[in-house]
Amino acid sequence: MAPFSFLAAAVGCFARRSLSVVSCTTSPLPRYTTVLPAAYINPLNYLSSQPSGPPKRPLNGYMKYVLKQQPIISTQYPDIKSVDIIRKIAQQWRTMSPDEKRPFQEASLRDREKFKIDLQQYQAQLSPAQVQQQALEKRQRLAKRKAIRKKRELTSLGKPKRPRSPFNIFISEHFEEARGTTTQAKMKSLMEDWRNLLSQQQKQVYTQLAEDDKIRYKNEMKSWEDHMVEIGREDLIRERTATKKKLATKKSVAKVATKSAKSKSAAKGAGKTKPKTTKKTIRRS
């Protein structure tokens, strides 16, 4: 009967002390403690005022239409790719009338108004440190996007690829037959093979190829930067190259100025010189 009486006492104690730690002690039995989940012990985790994250930006009317039509098109054409599905939806959107587009655009406007309110409430709950951290993260995102755009622009303008190191050349030559099934395993085996190249002559081959690649890069960069100057994109030239060009321009201008100054001074001095007079000799008769 003792276990049954203890169970009845525990149930009664749990009913009286809900959302807390159950601790029941009877005189003839030892003390037992039942621990509830942390969500019940510390309700502040659920009622915390700390924001979990900023509200998501609303979709425009077109994207709302895409989300609605994507499962329909996928069901109608199960064998086509996702890119072709988006193309079909975009074609449908272009052929729709303004009245057909209006419900999606109005829903987007309502979401924008709600987003503004949610964003104000979210920002009001932030501490100064959180505001500063968000500003830092925003600057980092903008800098990353700017770097990506610049890299794409340089690629489209045909900027030469940077020279490869001896190890990179070794990897490109032996990657296919490297041991391992994944890229990471292949790279690990190639690094071990590179370390095991004890012969200096074997590494010298890749070192010489890397030196030749540096010469290739130097020549291609010179031609490319000259072309950028011709099309008016001096902003894409490397700083040291631009500095050299400026110094060369200054030297040439200084030489021209020196030559012109010398020629002017010579002409001025020639104008001041008096003509020589010849003395006539008179013979006495």
Rank of each mutant, 00 (worst) to 15 (best):
P3H: 13
F4P: 00
F4R: 15
A9C: 10
A10E: 09
A10S: 10
G12A: 11
A15K: 15
R31K: 15
V35T: 10
V35K: 15
A38M: 15
I41W: 00
P43E: 13
P43T: 09
N45Y: 09
S48I: 07
G53R: 13
G61V: 06
K64A: 04
V66T: 04
L67W: 02
P71Q: 12
I72M: 07
S74E: 14
S74R: 15
S74F: 07
Q76F: 05
Q76N: 10
K81P: 00
K81I: 02
S82D: 03
D84S: 12
K88C: 03
Q91E: 13
M96K: 15
S97P: 02
Q105H: 06
E113Y: 07
I117N: 10
I117Y: 00
L119W: 01
Q121D: 12
K138Y: 11
R145I: 06
R145L: 14
R149K: 13
P163H: 13
R164L: 15
F170A: 06
I171A: 03
E173T: 07
E173Y: 08
E177I: 11
T182Y: 00
L190G: 02
L190D: 02
W194V: 04
N196E: 12
S199P: 01
Q200K: 15
K203P: 03
V205W: 00
V205G: 05
Q208V: 04
R216I: 04
N219G: 04
E220H: 07
E220V: 04
W224M: 07
M228I: 07
E230M: 12
E234L: 13
E234G: 08
D235N: 14
E239N: 08
A242Q: 11
L247M: 11
K251G: 03
A267G: 14
K268C: 06
A270W: 02
P275G: 04
T277E: 14
T281G: 05
R284F: 06
S285Y: 08
S285I: 09
